[in-house]
Nucleic acid binder design. Structure first.
Length: 421
RNA sequence: GGAGAGGUGGCCGAGCGGUCUAAGGCGGCGGAUUGCUAAUCCGUUGUAGUGGUUAUACCGCUACCCCGGGUUCAAAUCCCGGCCUCUCCGCCA
């Protein structure tokens, strides 16, 4: 969400960003509504002032024993007009809000605004080894992941992790959380996995991504979270912080639920695209002056997970046309999968500037005592499924099995042999 | 699920038809005092919109006491609906 003043003052920019991100917002209508609203408010303020003056006269005249009847009639008459204009204003504001809620965030200076731009490779590390076996064959043969029975229990793309597969998943989550908590100084959060409309609106998933959300029945009116970003970013929804409270750094594990509407047929086999998956997320509340450097820090923190796991990866900067609705700048981290022989996105690190904070109404008192919107950022650190793919393929063994990466071995509380059966 | 209590400014908390321009406290800010800190004293203190005007300064007006309706000339205050919190009971991992 943008400030109304900002929208008025930057019409070219707003039109540009809407067309770049292919957002269908009736800009013409939006600007005329903004003007209509202003005129209605002026009219309304004048009428209310008149009415208030009359109302103030009533007790005075009563005290003097005067006749208040004319006043009452006049006041009632104004009330009727006020009611009508309030209705008009309500309608105008409602429509204006709807249109505004569909305008995407602006982009940072170094993000390309060309219509046909593609990503820019920022960094490549490690070597792109290739191996014979891919994770899918290993996992299904050893029954580390039972895709068939997962589909029986729920639907396709709901994997059932079994034995060593389940342990790898759990171990990875613990390892990533501990890294962010102990080394990177994040506060651990275990959020609700269901959230209400407002939380999803605030982070920008709604109204745009409605069809990608799993939701409960109307009487519960809750949605399954597509990422821990949603509950965690909203922790201080509608609150005012002090400047000394910033930055705030949260990390959270959550299961993530996505309908992936419109992507049927694409990568439906295996772990690459799931309706339910696990992810450790980092979220920051930043001072507006510091969000740029916070983004770079978070990128390094997410990269560190892959470095410690001993995996090769690259970092790309997304072009504007591929940057999500709420984000002003996004880096993706892609891990190299040696058996599948391709790069796979395992993390997305974004700066939302004050776009989410405005929707969520999260502010802080700055040095001048003025309430100012914070900046929010988040980054996956990391999503497990594709990380698991890369681990299994990189650490595969001659006997069609895989070993745990060295950094995870301390996390294994049970003897290795328990997986042999 | 049943019964009861309650939702007021950054926070706590009083007010329960017109005098609310919301008491008091805490916190914040400014100042005095002061080796430093603490303590004390004095002053100050919300948000949004809209207009004067081009302006984050100043002034006016409007709205805002959980949200939405209603009663009334007039609502933080009365009535109805919703949401949320707390207490007790029931059920339950």
């Amino acid at each position: 969400m943008h400030d109304r003043e900002f929208i008025i003052a930057n019409r070219n920019l707003i039109e540009k960003i809407c067309s770049l991100k292919k957002t269908k917002v009736d800009i013409e209508r939006l600007y005329s509504l903004i003007e209509e609203r202003r005129l209605l408010i002026n009219r309304l303020n004048q009428l209310r002032e008149d009415k208030n003056k009359l109302t103030d006269e009533v007790p005075k005249i009563k005290k003097q024993g005067g006749d208040i009847k004319p006043l009452l009639e006049k006041s009632k008459e104004i009330s009727l007009t006020v009611g009508e204009i309030e209705k008009q204003l309500g309608n105008a504001e409602k429509e204006e809000n709807t249109l505004m809620s569909w305008v995407p965030n602006i982009l940072e200076k170094d993000v390309s605004t060309e219509n046909d731009a593609i990503f820019k490779v920022i960094k490549e590390t490690g070597t792109l080894n290739e191996k014979n076996r891919n994770y899918y064959d290993i996992c299904t043969e050893k029954n580390y992941i039972d895709f068939k029975r997962g589909a029986k229990l729920a639907a396709s793309s709901f994997p059932l992790y079994v034995g060593k597969g389940a342990l790898l998943e759990r171990t990875l989550i613990n390892f990533m959380l501990d890294l962010h908590i102990e080394k990177h100084g994040y506060l651990e959060i275990f959020p609700p996995f269901l959230v209400n409309y407002n939380s999803l609106y605030s982070t920008g998933q709604l109204p745009k991504m409605e069809e990608d959300m799993y939701s409960l029945s109307k009487e519960d009116n809750l949605y399954l979270i597509p990422t821990a970003e949603v509950p965690v970013t909203n922790i201080y929804n509608d609150e005012i912080l002090f400047e000394k409270d910033l930055p705030k750094k949260f990390t959270a594990y959550s299961a993530c639920f996505r309908r992936e509407a419109g992507s049927y047929g694409k990568e439906t086999k295996g772990l690459k695209r799931l309706h339910q998956f696990n992810k450790v997320e980092m979220v920051r509340y930043s001072h507006p002056d510091k969000s740029d450097e916070a983004l770079e820090e978070m990128l390094l923190e997410a990269e560190e997970v892959l470095r410690l796991l001993g995996l090769s990866y690259r970092v790309i900067l997304l072009p504007g046309n591929d940057t999500s609705f709420s984000s002003a700048k996004t880096y993706d981290i892609e891990v190299w999968a040696e058996g599948t022989k391709e790069y796979m996105e395992v993390s997305s690190v974004s700066n939302f500037l004050d776009f989410q904070a405005r929707r969520a109404n999260i502010r802080f008192k700055n040095k001048d005592g003025k309430n100012t919107f914070i900046h929010t950022l988040n980054g996956s650190g990391l999503a497990t499924p594709r990380t698991v793919i890369a681990i299994i393929e990189h650490y595969q063994t001659e006997d069609n099995d895989f070993e745990f990466p060295p950094v995870l071995r301390d996390y294994i509380k049970y003897g290795k042999e328990i997986f042999k059966s």
